[in-house]
Simulated assay, not measured.
Amino acid sequence: MMTQLARYLLVASVIAAVLAAMVPLAVAQEPRVVVYSSAGAEIGEELAAAFMKRNQNIKVESIYAGTGVVWTRTRAEAGRPQGDLCMCGGSENFDINYDLLESYKSQQDADIPADFKDAKAPPRYYGMSLPIQVIIVNSKLVQRRDYPRGWKDLADPRWKGKIIWANPRLSASAYAQLFQLIKIGGWDLVKGVLANAIITPSSGLAYQGVADGEFLLGMTGEGNVYDLRAKGYPVDVIYPVEGTGLRFDAIGLIKGGPNPRSGRLFYEFTLSRDAHMLYVKSGSRRSVRPDVPTPPGMPSTSRIPLVPYDAVKAGKDRGINLIIFDELLAKK
Rank of each mutant, 00 (worst) to 15 (best):
R158Y: 04
N196Q: 09
S203G: 15
E214R: 15
A155C: 10
I184S: 07
G185M: 04
L205C: 07
I132A: 07
L130W: 02
A166H: 01
P123M: 02
V193G: 08
I164Q: 08
D212V: 00
E214M: 07
I136R: 07
I199F: 07
L194E: 14
D212I: 00
L154Y: 07
K162N: 12
V134N: 04
D153R: 08
P201C: 02
G213E: 05
V190I: 08
K152P: 04
D188S: 15
L178K: 09
I182M: 13
S173C: 10
K183M: 06
A174I: 02
L205P: 13
D146C: 11
G213L: 06
R145P: 14
M128A: 05
G213W: 10
Y126T: 13
I198C: 03
N138P: 05
Y126Q: 03
Y175T: 00
G213M: 07
L189Q: 12
V190L: 09
Y125K: 01
G150D: 10
R145C: 13
Q177N: 14
I184F: 07
V134A: 08
R149L: 13
R149D: 14
I198K: 12
W151E: 05
Y126F: 06
W159P: 00
L181W: 12
T200L: 01
W151S: 05
S203Y: 05
D188G: 11
A211C: 09
I199S: 08
G127N: 02
P201G: 03
P157H: 12
I135T: 11
R145G: 15
D156T: 07
D212W: 03
D153Q: 09
Y125M: 02
P123F: 02
V137C: 06
S202W: 13
V190G: 10
A195I: 09
F215Y: 15
L181Q: 07
L189S: 03
S139W: 04
P201L: 00
P131G: 02
R144H: 14
Y126V: 12
R145H: 15
Y147I: 04
E214K: 14
P201R: 00
N167L: 01
W187S: 03
N196I: 09
P148V: 09
K191Y: 11
S173M: 03
G185F: 09
L170T: 15
W165I: 00
V137W: 04
D188R: 10
A172N: 15
L170M: 07
V210T: 00
N138E: 09
A197T: 03
R169D: 15
L194G: 15
Q180H: 07
Q133H: 10
G186M: 11
P157T: 13
G204D: 07
Y125T: 01
G186N: 11
K160I: 01
P123R: 01
K152G: 03
F179T: 11
L189M: 15
I164A: 08
M128H: 05
Y175Q: 01
P157L: 13
A121L: 11
S173H: 10
V210K: 05
G192Y: 04
I198Q: 12
